[in-house]
Nucleic acid binder design. Sequence first.
DNA 1: ACACCATGCTTGCTATTGCAAGCACAGTGC
DNA 2: GCACTGTGCTTGCAATAGCAAGCATGGTGT
Lengths: 144, 144
Amino acid sequence: MAGLNVGSLGEYIREQRRNAQYSLRQLAEAAGVSNPYLSQIERGLRRPSAEILQQIAKALRISAETLYVQAGILDEREEGDREVRTAIMADPAINDRQKRVLIEIYEAFRKENAQDGAVRDERGAADGTENGKAGRAVTDTYLE
Amino acid sequence: MAGLNVGSLGEYIREQRRNAQYSLRQLAEAAGVSNPYLSQIERGLRRPSAEILQQIAKALRISAETLYVQAGILDEREEGDREVRTAIMADPAINDRQKRVLIEIYEAFRKENAQDGAVRDERGAADGTENGKAGRAVTDTYLE
DNA sequence: ACACCATGCTTGCTATTGCAAGCACAGTGC
DNA sequence: GCACTGTGCTTGCAATAGCAAGCATGGTGT
């Protein structure tokens, strides 16, 4: 059994918190959790209960499901295929160009992964995990 | 705070277990949980952690989300604007870093839109590059 | 120099999770 | 009658979730 991936969960929460410009205490209060405990969660020292996770998710205004997936608690929903594209298109919070950018990057990632072991002519992607360069190329192209 | 509705969660699990013709011990073993603990959960005496809930859901072959909804941990169906993140996280076709990148860009877009006050679907010539810059900064940070 | 405030971290501590061992009751067979 | 097996429940106990109080550091004035 995988056991929760507490480390990456904590990192993810911290990342989201900083992204939202919250201090640790601010988020802790917004989530109704003590600040030392949140600190420990973020550093991967504690595995928060479902209830606490839910409160944190609410305070961060992200879906609890996202957190659960990050924590390895929730399995990835199969058939994610076109879900990303439709979800992006349906989102009223971003504009059309932003949608197009996101989808282009997404496509590029998928294409890169599909090639995987195959011919890599694009300026040497050293190993299979280096998708960054391909992604960067795409963003350079479309984010201007 | 609301606190999970443990009673109905336990009843629900017991119902599903009987429905599947499992004895308490059978389900306990299948879920990798001790039988007395499962008994207590079903009677609403304990609030199981997210991890345990997940294992039970797997053993019962029902979605963990269903259990979370029953437990009051997950809201029934949240607004569509959470869908993008969830869809990205759930997509098996891209790897973790790619997910992170997409979500970061998405967050940046949303944040930028929030600062502007509203989403203007297609901008005029005045500040047409603004979104591009924000997106680029994010991708430069995470795509190297 | 000093006070003041915000940041995140450490330290005990209590309450709760989750388990191993065992109990009580009901069949079933001999 | 008696053993045996399956059902769910009770009882301690170890591990840990989660908190209140306080510490250390860094900034910002004055």
